[in-house]
C-alpha cells in the first residue's frame, strides 16, 4: 500500500523488490527534499523506523531509511542520495523520535549533516573527533548503479541522478500508470 502513495511524490522511483533475495518488499528512491513528506506518509500508515543506513558511493551519500510494520508484512526502504558537494538531509526526528540517534550515528560515520536535528552531537564517536570512519578513498568508491543491479525502477528518473532504467520486469505505475503497487 505505501507504494501507491509514494509513487505520487515528485520524481520518486518506486520499485517492487524480490523479497526472498533482498528482504525488501518495496524500495523508493526519492529526492532529498521529498524525504520529510515521505517519512510523514510512512508514519501515517503505521510503520516504524527500523534504522538509517548510510553508504558512501561515487555519487555521494546514499541514505536508506528502512521501515517495517507490526501487522503488515514487507519492509519498505526510502532511499535518498545526498550529493558529495552538499552532504545534507532533512531530519525526520520530529516525525520518528527514534530517528534522532540513527541520524547522529550516520553523521558520526559519514559526516552527513542532518538539517534541523535537535541535538547534533556525536553519539558513538568521541565528541572532538574529526574522523568519519566509513568514508572511502576515491579509488575505493563504487557507483550506485554497480551496487544495485537488482533494483527495478519505474516511474521516471530524477534529473540529478543518472540511474539506469528498470532492468527487471515489474509493475508499471506512476501518476499516469494504472497498476497498483502493494
Amino acid at each position: 500500500m505505501p507504494g501507491r502513495y509514494l509513487q505520487h511524490l515528485p520524481k520518486a522511483i518506486v520499485a517492487r523488490m524480490d523479497e526472498a533475495k533482498t528482504g525488501l518488499a518495496l524500495s523508493a528512491i526519492i529526492p532529498v527534499e521529498a524525504l520529510h513528506e515521505a517519512a510523514a506518509l510512512m508514519d501515517g500508515l503505521g510503520y516504524f523506523l527500523e534504522d538509517v543506513t548510510g553508504v558512501h558511493v561515487a555519487e555521494g551519500f546514499e541514505l536508506d531509511y528502512c521501515f517495517a510494520h507490526w501487522t503488515r508484512p514487507g519492509r519498505v526502504c526510502l532511499c535518498i542520495v545526498a550529493p558529495a558537494s552538499q552532504p545534507e538531509a532533512p531530519t525526520i526526528s520530529d516525525i520518528f523520535p527514534g530517528a534522532d540517534w540513527h541520524e547522529r550515528e550516520t553523521a558520526d560515520f559519514l559526516g552527513v549533516r542532518f538539517v534541523g536535528h535537535p541535538n547534533p552531537q556525536p553519539l558513538l564517536m568521541p565528541e572532538d573527533s574529526l574522523h568519519h570512519p566509513l568514508l572511502r578513498e576515491k579509488t575505493d568508491l563504487r557507483s550506485i548503479h554497480a551496487l544495485l543491479p537488482q533494483q527495478c525502477f519505474i516511474n521516471g528518473l530524477p534529473e540529478t541522478l543518472d540511474l539506469p532504467r528498470r532492468t527487471a520486469p515489474c509493475a508499471a505505475g506512476g501518476p499516469s500508470g494504472s497498476t497498483r503497487l502493494p
Binding site: 533475495k21 533482498t22 528482504g23 528502512c66 519492509r75 554497480a146 551496487l147 543491479p149 537488482q150
Partner: peptide, 8 residues
C-alpha cells in the same frame, strides 16, 4: 554478488 539484502 552485487546487490543488497536485509536479514532479520
Amino acid at each position: 554478488p552485487k546487490g543488497e539484502t536485509s536479514f532479520a
